[in-house]
Nucleic acid binder design. Structure first.
Lengths: 146, 146
DNA sequence: TACTGTATGTCAGAATACTGACATGAGTCA
DNA sequence: TGACTCATGTCAGTATTCTGACATACAGTA
């Protein structure tokens, strides 16, 4: 009576978990010396590309709950890396912005993360990289479609 | 002065994080009704395929620390899902085995997870799936090579 | 207007995984 | 033999994220 389960060696799901775990480990390794976590970095990178993002929007972009992002923003605000208005302009949304200190922090971190990403895909040529990215996007869409 | 960072929309790293986050969410959604977490399920699946795995080996296979797996095994043992000898045969390694209850639990969970994985790759044909898996493996290897 | 549904910011507590540390056992090598 | 290195199981404490909950704000609709 053998278990008709998932062959971990060839399961795309397992391989994806393995790869993302390796990516996570590699990113933590380069961010730790900078005193940053992955969520910390993700938050800064998101704000650099789309300034004024709200707490909830940042949470979705960093793939954590808005509660988790909330505590992250509190500490980033305390450290003077980001700033938020005391009162919302309309509704409840508090748009967040990078400070100069935040931009400086991000510059270093972003270079380090770019190096990791480059290392990850070093065995894939341009066409393969774009094909790979497209497949990942397809997987994401299919999973979310339910 | 624009930020020369990572374009999140096309970054392979970001797309991978997005996909693995979607996979995680989908797996949690099907495992939660069964009263199982992803680590819980991973542990059972590993044991089904390679009976007698030690705590440390299970940890590596599930991509968590051996300390985390240790507390997981304690609760699985308490629930009668796995069993370990009271004393090691040699060294300090305690080989773990699934109980009948554990096998039953796994059968249900494994079917649910297989369905999720199938959904994830439903837009990829056989060749693309194998190509995708190979690319993931390459990424993992490159990241670990440092 | 009133109502419903959806989204937000925030607080509190629980669950989960992590880092640090220690002792034990096996293997290697001088 | 003894010293050294490495991997393991385990304990303790910390950190991070999550779930649950609440009040608030807006858009759409009857």
């Amino acid at each position: 009576m053998s278990h008709e389960g998932i062959d971990l060696g060839t399961s795309v799901g397992y391989l994806m978990k393995e790869a993302s775990s390796a990516l996570r480990t590699a990113m933590e390794a380069v961010l730790r010396p900078l005193g940053m976590t992955i969520t910390h970095y993700s938050c800064l990178e998101l704000l650099a590309q789309r300034p004024g993002l709200s707490n909830s929007e940042l949470a979705r972009g960093a793939f954590v709950t808005r509660q988790s992002m909330h505590v992250m923003l509190l500490s980033l605000e305390r450290d003077g890396v980001v700033s938020r208005p005391g009162q919302p302009e309309s509704g409840r949304v508090l748009p967040t912005a990078l400070t100069e200190k935040g931009r400086a922090q991000l510059a270093t971190a972003s270079a380090a993360v770019r190096a990791v990403e480059k290392r990850m895909t070093r065995d894939l040529d341009i066409d393969e990289q774009s094909r790979f990215g497209f497949m990942l996007t397809q997987c994401t869409a299919s999973l979310r479609a339910g």
